[in-house]
């Protein structure tokens, strides 16, 4: 959209576009460890339903995902796969890091085989602390992400540095 890139879009229209975008997200789950169980409760169970926020889980592939929830310990062996799948997601994409292992290495901060935090390989938008965080905590993280999207400046994002896939 030429109007969006050049920043000539009126504010209320940007807000409207952002609002429509934030309520139609397709979330890609990376369940790597125990946090995946809580993520499953948040996304798939009727009690902590995430669909009421307009977020639908289980996309068919990363190329159709809007944001990704990295839940669980990222090992050094898994890190290249995480990076590759994140690069396969089309812009605009966001990352939620769920649980202390994905935030900072968590209880395995001293291990020989753990990547201390997924933000060492991909940029993270929202950190959800907990070990594991309750499903409600993850839902709050998603709500915070939606708030962030609402106040996002689409022009800045479009004019940003090009993402080079190596």
């Amino acid at each position: 959209m030429g109007l969006v890139e050049s920043g000539k879009l009126p504010k209320p229209l940007t807000k409207l576009l952002n609002m429509s975008r934030k309520y139609s997200m397709w979330v890609y789950q990376w369940g790597l460890a125990c946090c995946a169980i809580e993520m499953g409760a948040a996304f798939a169970s009727p009690r902590y339903d995430v669909m009421r926020l307009g977020v639908i889980p289980l996309p068919a592939s990363p190329r159709q995902a809007d944001f990704v929830v990295v839940s669980g310990t990222v090992t050094d062996k898994m890190a290249p796969a995480v990076r590759r799948l994140w690069e396969q997601m089309p812009d605009p994409k966001y990352v939620i890091s769920m649980g202390s292992c994905a935030n900072c290495g968590g209880p395995y901060w001293d291990s020989y085989s753990v990547t201390k935090g997924v933000d060492q390989i991909i940029p993270v938008d929202v950190y959800v602390p907990g070990c594991p965080p309750r499903p409600e905590a993850l839902l709050e993280g998603i709500v915070l992400l939606q708030e962030r999207i609402l106040h996002e400046d689409m022009a800045e994002r479009w004019k940003g540095d090009p993402i080079v896939v190596q």
Binding site: G105, W109, Y112
Partner: peptide, 21 residues
């Protein structure tokens, strides 16, 4: 089987340093 390819060293030996610690 567990370690990534190209991992140097043998982690469960007592003299393998945990760098974070």
């Amino acid at each position: 089987i567990y370690l990534p390819g190209g991992f140097e060293g043998h982690p469960l030996r007592k003299d393998y340093p945990l760098l974070a610690r």
